[in-house]
Amino acid sequence: MNFDQLKDQWNESETSSNEISENMLKVTEARTPIDQIRKKMKHEFFGQLISLLILVIAPKIFHFTKELTTIYILFYGIICGFMAYYFFKFYLFYKHSYDLSLDSRKNLLWFYYEMKLNLELYKALTYIVGFILLAFCAIALFTINSELLNKIFAKVSLTYIAINIIVTILLVGIITELWAKFYYGKYLKQIKKIVDSMDEE
């Protein structure tokens, strides 16, 4: 083996070692936004759990009638069913993100796309819960004193009520989208940027 061949092999191994260390630096850099996402997920979980517990005492706070309380319990049970499914998916992803060794582009990509999927699930859940609560409000309106209901309809037109419902749905949608974007979005962008800058394995 001549000296030039030996020199070329040495240079190749040095380049390869530099590439590995660069990729490792990028993976280490990616851990920070991933840790931030995990932290926010934990806060989100406890926040939603507390909101569910607050919803349990809503009939007492708003002095629901016995009939309305029964209807509320039914709707609350449906909300809990949807939330339980979401919490289960949420927990599986959160737990698996710790089991997975985030030392490669492939695993970082997995985290990125799974988190995006969980965000879509989160948004869908918010819309579902929003519609369930809206349906309960509509039923509650028709189960209260009919004289009061007649007074409301005498003063307010059906068009006005329909416009209010549409505006409420739009507001729930906008708040949900903005919340997901500002709460998790910037960290997902950081991970995607790091993944894109890494070489294909």
Results as ranks from 00 to 15, higher is better:
L74R: 05
L178T: 15
L125R: 11
V129K: 05
L188F: 10
L134P: 08
L102G: 02
F3N: 14
L134M: 14
S16V: 04
S101C: 02
S51K: 12
F182Q: 14
L6V: 15
L148T: 05
Y112S: 13
Y72K: 04
F88S: 03
L119K: 08
I165G: 08
Y72D: 02
L102V: 04
L178W: 15
Q5K: 06
S13Q: 14
Y76W: 00
G173C: 10
K89S: 09
L178C: 15
G47P: 05
F131N: 09
L121K: 05
L134R: 11
L100K: 08
Y187Q: 04
I54D: 02
L74W: 06
V195R: 13
K89P: 00
K26M: 15
E44M: 06
T168V: 10
Y122C: 06
F90Y: 05
E67N: 11
V56G: 00
Y91K: 00
M198K: 04
F62W: 00
M1H: 15
L119N: 10
W110I: 03
V195K: 12
A84D: 01
E12H: 03
N11S: 06
F3C: 07
I161K: 02
F182P: 13
L49D: 09
H43E: 14
S101Q: 08
F88T: 02
N23C: 10
K151V: 00
A135E: 14
I34R: 13
K116D: 11
F136W: 13
Y72M: 00
A180H: 13
K151L: 03
G81S: 07
N164R: 07
I191C: 07
I61M: 04
L141S: 08
T15S: 14
S97Y: 04
K95H: 01
W10K: 09
D4W: 07
M24H: 10
S51D: 06
H96G: 01
E44R: 05
R38Q: 03
E120F: 12
Y122R: 14
L125W: 06
E120S: 13
I174P: 08
F82G: 05
I128E: 02
I132Q: 02
K26N: 13
T159R: 14
A30N: 11
N145H: 03
V156K: 04
M198V: 01
D4M: 08
K95M: 03
D196Q: 11
I73E: 08
Q48G: 10
K116T: 07
W110C: 02
G47H: 07
F3R: 14
C137K: 12
N11A: 02
I191T: 06
P59E: 06
A58D: 04
L102K: 07
N18A: 14
R38G: 02
L148Q: 04
L121V: 05
K151S: 06
L53H: 06
G47W: 05
L158D: 09
L149W: 01
T65N: 02
A180Q: 15
S146N: 00
M115C: 13
T143I: 06
W10P: 01
I79L: 01
E29F: 08
E200C: 06
I194M: 03
A30L: 09
V172S: 10
M24L: 13
R105L: 06
I163C: 09
E201M: 01
F64H: 06
E19T: 12
L102M: 13
T159D: 15
